[in-house]
């Protein structure tokens, strides 16, 4: 009794995707505790629903969509969202144009980019992370966010523009910084 037809399959889903979904949620919420809760809820929902999933479904994209939805609900009507906007403003770099060219290390550039991403409006932030960090197709990003692939693309575009603007007043690591970064 109590046989679960495809629990083995679900176990494999967890093994394959849990860590990545968790990372995604850390990036979106900025908090491990929230990522813990939301990732758990993501997989519990998936567990309840996965039996009805078509055999050829893209499970990874589906999990991202569930996680994204939970995030949106999580932030909805919460002050956190406004705080995120406030953080966005704070994250816009002050004009310290005096920074000498080439001095900004990739690590710093990355930190600055992260700050900008953290400060993006929720949809832009999620679109950006889904596409640029987790490399989902725009169609899947759109499905997660409940918008078209084109709108998803526009969100990512806006996010990139903001990051680019954030670097405007700062000297950036050169294009080759990535390659010359010493390995640690």
């Amino acid at each position: 009794m109590g046989r679960v037809m495809d629990d083995g399959a679900f176990e494999a889903v967890i093994t394959a995707h849990h860590a990545e979904i968790h990372r995604y949620l850390v990036r979106v919420t900025g908090r491990r505790s929230e990522a813990d809760d939301l990732s758990q809820e993501t997989f519990l929902r998936a567990y309840r629903a996965h039996a009805g999933l078509p055999a050829d479904a893209n499970v990874r994209a589906w999990l991202f969509a569930i996680a994204t939805n939970l995030c949106r609900n999580h932030f909805r009507g919460e002050k956190r969202r406004r705080l995120a906007h406030a953080a966005a403003e704070a994250a816009v770099p002050a004009d310290d144009g005096g920074t000498p060219e080439g001095e900004m290390l990739l690590v710093e550039a990355r930190a600055r980019a992260s700050e900008v991403v953290d400060g993006l409006p929720l949809k832009q932030r999620m679109a950006f992370i889904l596409r640029k960090v987790h490399e989902l197709e725009y169609g899947a990003v759109g499905e997660s966010l409940g918008c078209s692939a084109e709108t998803a693309r526009a969100h990512v575009f806006q996010a990139l523009k903001k990051i680019r603007r954030a670097f405007d007043t700062l000297a950036m690591a050169t294009a080759g910084a990535e390659r010359t970064e010493p390995t640690r």
């Binding site: 849990h18 860590a19 968790h22 990372r23 850390v26 990036r27 908090r31 491990r32 990522a35 990732s39 990739l106 550039a109 990355r110 980019a113 992260s114 991403v117 640029k132 960090v133 490399e135 990139l160 990051i163 680019r164 670097f167 950036m172 690591a173 050169t174 294009a175 910084a177 990535e178 970064e181």
Partner: peptide, 21 residues
């Protein structure tokens, strides 16, 4: 924008401090 893309790509590979799942 190519430089930005480089940074973004490194973002993808960068470890997260608080992500132990």
């Amino acid at each position: 924008y190519r430089e930005v893309d480089g940074i973004v790509q490194s973002l993808r590979r960068a470890p997260l401090r608080t992500s132990d799942p």
